[in-house]
């Protein structure tokens, strides 16, 4: 479904991604783990068209999207739920979800998708008139994910969904991710919480300073000595 081939991305003089290759098959959950600054978010932003690569390929369903605009990529069904949630704090929960469905031209579709999002996150329905900024951290993460789901993703890019959340909420968010995946949405998950990410995903890639240093089925990686030491606390 998604094929990234020797991708190079830089910010000015900083060479952030040094020829990485990632693939993801339909229906999979693939995790991308690594320390801060390894280039995980950069990878997602390159897929979303926020950053354009210097060289390399990004193919979705066999078509190149490396030079597409973010709006075109959203229309193809790749939706990113950004790091730090980035909800619109001065807009209501309802309006945030409306913005999530910005690419939909049909109003009925918007309403149906919103009903579905409310089914997954009943909390959002209760708070739909509240401003996004007044929500708690967990609720904001739900809103950010709900907003992503509004556009009917085929591939959801999740950037650090567990960041700054209490352990109980992290559990809940990961359960929801599994549920979303069961509905047929493929997921590329960027996480610092390697334990949870490896437990949830089918396959994983380990990134270090702009390169992929390890990859394979998640169960195998969990047993890997290097992964254990660096990311799973020995």
């Amino acid at each position: 479904m998604l094929n990234i081939n020797s991708l190079n991305v830089s910010y000015g003089a900083i060479h952030a991604l040094k020829g990485i290759s990632i693939s993801l098959n339909e229906g999979e959950i693939v995790a991308l783990i690594g320390a801060n600054g390894a280039g995980k978010s950069t990878t997602l932003n390159a897929i979303s068209g926020i950053l354009h690569p210097d060289s390399g390929e990004i193919n979705f369903d066999g078509r190149s999207i490396a030079q597409s605009k973010p709006g075109e990529i959203v229309k193809q069904g790749i939706i990113q739920v950004p790091e730090g949630r980035k909800i619109f704090s001065r807009m209501s929960v309802y309006e945030n979800l409306e913005m999530g469905g910005y690419s939909l031209s049909n109003k009925n579709q918007l309403r149906e998708n919103m009903a579905q999002v409310f089914e997954i996150f009943p909390r959002l329905k209760e708070r739909q008139k509240q401003l996004g900024g007044t929500l708690s951290g967990g609720e904001q993460q739900m809103l950010s994910m709900g907003r992503g789901l509004m556009a009917e993703p085929r591939l959801l890019l999740l950037d650090e969904p567990s960041m700054g959340l209490a352990p109980m909420l992290v559990e809940q968010i990961f359960t929801t991710i599994a549920k979303i995946n069961n509905e047929g949405v493929s997921i590329l998950l960027v996480e610092q919480n390697a334990q949870m990410a490896l437990a949830l995903s089918n396959r994983a890639y380990v990134m270090e300073t702009g390169k992929i240093v390890l990859s394979g089925p998640s169960e195998t990686l969990m047993e890997n000595q290097m992964v254990k030491e660096a990311y799973l606390g020995g």
Partner: peptide, 20 residues
């Protein structure tokens, strides 16, 4: 109007919603 408010708040998040 809503997309204007969204862009005013966070251009990157707005772009990720497919807003031009």
């Amino acid at each position: 109007g809503k997309s204007m408010r969204a862009v005013a708040e966070n251009k990157q998040a707005a772009a990720l919603m497919g807003i031009d």
